[in-house]
Each structure stands twice: as structure tokens, then as C-alpha cells.
Nucleic acid binder design. Structure first.
Lengths: 334, 334
DNA sequence: TTGAAAGCGATACCAG
DNA sequence: CTGGTATCGCTTTCAA
């Protein structure tokens, strides 16, 4: 910048004005400075700029997901990127793998780089580390999992309602013994979905039977084994709800192995690619990761724009996509 | 930092030494400084640090993919993140959507933030903008697509070999009329895969028949229409190679609609989730995005560590996963 | 082993 | 409209 000023024969401040497109520079000087910039191949240094700038903004935000490679997460990532781009903001993306120490490490690294804000899929249920950071002034929005405090906004899917819908749908197709596969109870969404199951059963006047419920199931292999176990039990369910995408895949495999895919109904939570090409095609409760990501980014930028209102909880609707597997009737009904 | 120094009763420089774990600070002072840091909740400012630091490193790299939400890309993203984490480096991730102006915009934003290096899935074939940036000193590694210059390293899958393998596999199963679906020819990988097809045919002593080749097909819907067109042609192929994951999905749909999935063989390039649960399960040439991402990150960090050797091209093997759809024999052979 | 002063590249403030 | 000077938070250099 110094060199640019020298070449254009103006002061540092004038170059700064040109670079930042501030008003009040005569056309003549503007031209000279622009020429000098081009000639020298000058590149503005955002980091130095934000150091001195009054608002100290870095035009940078952090995004901490469970796993950037997970299709649900990466779609959120993409949606956030789009909103950020309109604001000339870059996104640091990272994966916590559901581990508190990774979450803490990432947040520390982001704070050291002075990001303007953070969108995070929080690990665990108490959020102590994150809230401490929030209280120190880092704007923060939770995504996919609801915050334990009103200091931060949350954008979540309608997990409970989605599973209730699934239960109702199965009940309407004559099912009274509906099995449930759930992820780790320490994950907020897993808990919500289980509640949806319990409430759905109640609404339909069905009993909650412990032997049909399998929680804390993690990953495809475990889901397959657990679903098989359910299917081969003495009084097996006539329908299954798999409340997470990997669990759905495991359940599909188990149904195949037992050759029960045309006999036992299945509804998965969260859509999976190619689900419509299986036989039967898999009925799912779909989330809307694009809407979730957009809403989260919009909340964060609203905060950066000075919104000081109480933390909001935005619930993005889920919808049931009937494809076949969820419309099978139990044996003997038709 | 000033406050920390005041509270500990030492100079700025001593605090700096402690923060950077530089040797040559007495245990007493180290203790006092650490206490002051904790007491004040001091946070090191990496951006200010790198501004003054001799090597000007920001411990930050850029990653520009086609689309961070694409499963192949997001797996690369994750692999790179892991390598970067070991080096305390954060990753700015972004999507070009295959558009040159987005690529240029992102690179400009990264350069303004003084990233240490860039891993990019380059748009187009000439790479002019990127190479200019490279020449200005920004370390750069290309991923998934080979560089047009030895100024940058490239890490690519064995596209050509993979498709050759597919052709050979189909020929071994009696096919002589093998159709080909290709993505936009302006994409380097699409071109490579097409060459693999041509060379594979030659190796097997088969003719290249123009009416069996459909290139510049983009997306699921177009692939479905094009594949249907092929299937309903006068002398249709007995086997199909879909050389990209979305094209594979389109081809599967077309085969289903024509009820030809048990009659016309199919091999897809790039694995797709649930492919093994379809009927027939889909045979694919799988890439190894984790290995690709790791290699790319390792190359970049090697450059940052001072490796000045000529640009390398690292080719990561592909492998054929036989699941059923690629092992169907043409009618009348068995 | 410790510290004082200079300066990284830019913007803020205020004077001309 | 334009520029001089102080300063952002930190590291470097060099002297004590």
C-alpha cells in the first residue's frame, strides 16, 4: 500500500480510501491510484485491515459440524456458504466428530483468528464451553440441536413432529406394534425423536412397549444387528421407525437379510439418496438441510447487524415422503 | 497482551515468549505470566501475530471444491481437514459450482486473507487465473483434476485406468456393444474417462461406435433421458458405462423405467451410497476420496515446508467393485 | 534471562 | 478533498 501511494504520488490514507471505495476522492486521484494498484499488482490485506478497523470485523465465520462429510451436514455447509458469500464472508468449516475436546479445540482456534461469529452443531447437552465463549462476546448460532440457553439462537428440524407423523402414518396403515431404533441418547435430536415416538404412540392410543424400543444404536452395523434382533424376537414389530439415516440403512439391510422388506413396514428419519430406487422404495421423514443452513446463517448475520433480542428457536418443518415401505399393511389386515 | 504484561509485571516481549512457548524464560516469570493470562482470560490474536511474524504464516489454507455438498468433494474436505488439524491449520472451504468467476472471486478473497496455501479442484482446462496466483507466490495443489502446468502438484484418481477396467470387465462378460455416458467434455475427468473408454475398447478389439457414445450429459435428469434414448435405439447397447455418479443414478432410473435392469449391464464410475442394496446391486469403479484428500494436503504442507521440486502428478488407484449389475451377460450368450 | 523500541499493513482521527 | 500521525496486537531486533 505504501508503494501504491508512492507511485500514485498520494498519501497512504488516500489509497485506503480508494481501496475501501470511500466517497470523497476526486476522479483524478482515484484514477491514478487505481492505475498504481494494477501496475504493482497490489493486494489488499484483510487481516491487517481488520486489526485496525473500528469494528474489528474479519469477514470470516466458523462452522463446526459433526462431520463435514455427512450429507446432511455438508448440505447445511453449502447453504451457509451461499448466504455468507453475499456478505463477502468466508467460512472456516470443521468437524467435531461428536467429541467435546475437538469442539473446544476448534472453537479456540477460531477465537484466536477473531472470527466474527460461529455456527455450531453442539456436542452434548450442556454446552458449557460454547456458552462461555458466547458470554465472552462471540456471536453464536446452534444448528440442528437446540441450545440449553437463550444466549444463542437455535435452528432445528421438527424432529418430534416428524416422528409423530411417522407413527401416525403407520398407525393409519394398521400397525400397532411399531419398533423404534434410536441414536445415542446424549444427542439432542435422538432424544427429541424418541419423544416424538412416545407422544405419537400416545396420540394413537398405542402402548409403549419396551421390547420394541432400541436406543443408543450407533452406525450402520449396529443398526443392522439390532434390527435383526428385533425382527427375530418372539413377538416382532410389524413396522420399524429408524430415527437416523445410518440407522435406516442398517434397518434396510436387516430387512433384506430376513427377507422381510415386503412384510415389515419401514420409515426412516432423514432422507437417503437412492431411497426411491429400492424395492420397496423407502418412505422417509425428510428434513430440509438447505432451509436449516440458510436460517442459521441469517440468524448469525442478523446478530452481527446488531440484533440484540432474546435467543430464538427456529423450527424447520419436516415432511413425510411416502414411497412404499411405510405403506405396507401388517399381515392379516388386508 | 499489554494488560497481561502489566498484571504479571513483565514486558510485552516476555508475555510473547510465554505465549509462543519460546525457551529462555525463567520458571518464576513463566508462572506469573500464565497466571495473568488465565486471570484475564487473555486470548492470543493469531491474525496480529502473523502480521508481524517473519514467515507471515496464518496457519490457514483455502479449499475450493466444485460443491462442498457433493459426497465425493465433502469426503475430500474431511480428509484434508484431518491433515490440516495436525498442523494446527484451519481450512476455508468453498464451492465454485464449476464457474470460473466464482473460482476467481474465492481465490481473491483467500489471497486477501493471506492463506498459506490453496487446494483447488480447478474449473476448466486452462487455469490461467489460478496459475497467475501461483506465480505470485501462493502455494497451490490441484485435486481431482490435473494441472496444465508443472508449477502446481496434482492429485487425481486413475480415471482412465478405471474406465478401461470397466470396459475389460464388460468384455469379459461377453459384451461387444458397450454404451458410454459422459459429463461435460470441458471437465478434465470427463475427458480422461472417455479416453479410458476408447482405449479400453481398442484393447479388447472392439469398435468405437459413435451412436453408443453420449457425452456432455449433465445431471440426473439429462442422464435418464439420454440413457433411455440409447436403450430404445434401433440397435441398443447390451451394457452401459455411466462415467459419473449422477449419470449412474440417471442410468439406473432409465433402466428401471425400461424394465431392463436385469438385461442390460451397468457399471458406474464413482461409488454411490446404497448401490449395494439395489436389484441388481450396482457394480462401480470406486474412487478413494480419502486417499486423494490426504495426498493433496500432504503435498501442500510439503510445499509449505520448503519442497521446491518440480510439480508432481499423484495418481490414486481406482478399483472395480463387482456387485451384480456389471456381471450380467448379454442376451443369448448363456 | 529480560526489556525498549521499531514496525508488520492497514484505518481512525483530526487538521489543513 | 487530502494528508500527517497515532495505533491495532503482536514479533523482531538489539541492547542491557
Amino acid at each position: 500500500m505504501r508503494e501504491v501511494a508512492a507511485l500514485a504520488g498520494v498519501s497512504l490514507k488516500t489509497v485506503s480510501r480508494v481501496v475501501n471505495r470511500e466517497p470523497g476522492v476526486s476522479g483524478d486521484l482515484l484514477q491514478r491510484v487505481d492505475d498504481a494498484i494494477r501496475l504493482l499488482g497490489y493486494r489488499h490485506d484483510t487481516t491487517a485491515s481488520s486489526l485496525r478497523r473500528a469494528d474489528r470485523r474479519t469477514a470470516t465465520i466458523g462452522l463446526l459440524l459433526d462431520d463435514v462429510a455427512n450429507p446432511f451436514s455438508s448440505t447445511i455447509n453449502r447453504a451457509i456458504e451461499e448466504v455468507a458469500r453475499e456478505r463477502q464472508t468466508l467460512v472456516f468449516a470443521g468437524s467435531s466428530d461428536g467429541r467435546l475436546e475437538r469442539e473446544a479445540e476448534f472453537v479456540r482456534a477460531l477465537a484466536a483468528r477473531r472470527v466474527d461469529g460461529l455456527i455450531v452443531m453442539p456436542v452434548g447437552l450442556d454446552h458449557a464451553t460454547l456458552l462461555r465463549e458466547r458470554q465472552r462476546g462471540l456471536p453464536m448460532v446452534f444448528v440442528d440441536r437446540r441450545a440449553s440457553s437463550l444466549l444463542v439462537d437455535s435452528v432445528v428440524a421438527d424432529n418430534r413432529g416428524g416422528v409423530q407423523m411417522a407413527v401416525q402414518h403407520l398407525a393409519e396403515h394398521g400397525h400397532r406394534r411399531i419398533g423404534f431404533l434410536g441414536d445415542l441418547s446424549s444427542i439432542w435430536t435422538a432424544e427429541e425423536r424418541y419423544r416424538g415416538y412416545v407422544e405419537g404412540l400416545a396420540t394413537e392410543g398405542l402402548y409403549l412397549e419396551a421390547e420394541l424400543v432400541r436406543r443408543d444404536v450407533r452406525g450402520i452395523a449396529a443398526a443392522e444387528a439390532t434390527a435383526a434382533d428385533l425382527l427375530y424376537s418372539i413377538d416382532p414389530p410389524t413396522a420399524l421407525i429408524a430415527s437416523q439415516n445410518l440407522l435406516t440403512i442398517g434397518a434396510i439391510r436387516a430387512l433384506r437379510s430376513a427377507n422381510a422388506q415386503q412384510r415389515v413396514a419401514l420409515i426412516g428419519f432423514d432422507d437417503v439418496p437412492l431411497a426411491d430406487l429400492l424395492s420397496p422404495p423407502v418412505t422417509v421423514v425428510a428434513q430440509d438441510p438447505v432451509a436449516i443452513g440458510q436460517a442459521a446463517a441469517q440468524r448469525l448475520f442478523a446478530r452481527l447487524d446488531g440484533d440484540e433480542s432474546e435467543g430464538q428457536v427456529i423450527v424447520v418443518p419436516t415432511r413425510l415422503i411416502a414411497r412404499g415401505s411405510g405403506e405396507l399393511w401388517p399381515p392379516g389386515v388386508l
